[in-house]
């Protein structure tokens, strides 16, 4: 623990409170590495196409601010902002941020929660998935299409249809679990309990995995997984779903 901490930059919608709560909680449990968290906010209150466009226009400023802080890894933590702008958009977004950073001589690694969710599903070898989103149906449909375009079959999904982003941050876990229970999980490899970094779900991941008997991930656990992989740390965090136990050497009996 004597090493210099890994500085994690979070680019978050201004109304988001969950990323800055869940990400430190998860990564504090990562053995052998200390993390510090630094965020920059893009103004966004309602999850609508107009506000998402306006928010994406603020990305460069956020990258500049976090670049100044000399972070080691940067997570663009708004999944729907990327997934609603076009299929495969996380690659362009990550590339754009990386270009901006590398031009200025920063060696910070770049991740997005959209890309991290895809990487998490790939790491679990998922083919058929189910998911719960807080979004309005049209946006949720875009997220489903996006994930399917990345090569996964979305067998079933629920949209909780909460437009106000602050309210998304207050969705009770019981409502998320109820939505998950209503899914048809037959033949599903992986359940995405929350395809949104604002919908609180960290405490639900392990519970859901135990209840449904299949790997469960959230945008947050997938983000944590990608951060650990990117900095070359081992992925061994118990109690947050099997994705975060990827490098666990011995499974406790």
């Amino acid at each position: 623990m004597s090493k210099t901490p890994v500085r994690v930059g979070l680019i978050v919608p201004s109304s988001n409170v969950t990323v800055e709560t869940e990400m430190p909680r998860i990564l504090a449990r990562a053995p052998g590495t200390e993390f510090t968290f630094h965020s920059s906010r893009m103004r966004m209150k309602a999850v609508s196409p107009e506000q998402i466009r306006a928010m994406n226009a603020q990305r460069e400023r956020c990258v500049m601010e976090l670049g100044d802080a000399g972070v080691d890894v940067m997570l663009y933590a708004c999944l729907v902002a990327i997934m609603s702008t076009g299929l495969g958009a996380h690659r362009d977004a990550e590339m754009g941020v990386a270009e901006q950073l590398s031009l200025g001589g920063s060696e910070a690694k770049v991740l997005s929660s959209a890309g991290a969710l895809i990487s998490g599903l790939q790491a679990l070898g998922a083919r058929r998935i189910a998911l719960v989103t807080p979004y309005m149906r049209p946006l949720a449909q875009q997220v489903v299409d996006y994930i399917e375009a990345e090569g996964f079959e979305v067998a079933d999904w629920r949209a909780l249809e909460v437009a106000d982003n602050a309210e998304v941050g207050r969705i009770p876990g019981e409502r998320v679990m109820a939505a998950a229970r209503s899914l048809d999980l037959a033949g599903v490899d992986v359940l995405v309990i929350s395809a949104c970094v604002q919908m609180p779900s960290l405490d639900l991941v392990q519970t859901a995995e135990d209840e449904f008997g299949i790997p469960v991930i959230s945008a947050a656990t997938a983000g944590a997984y990608s951060i650990l992989r990117t900095i070359g740390a081992s992925v061994d965090i118990p109690g947050a779903g099997s994705l975060l136990l990827a490098d666990a050497s011995v499974v406790a009996s």
Partner: peptide
């Protein structure tokens, strides 16, 4: 692209 000089070069915002 809007960027700053974050590396050893420390060039101005550009």
């Amino acid at each position: 692209i809007c960027a700053a000089g974050w590396g050893p070069d420390k060039h101005p915002d550009f």
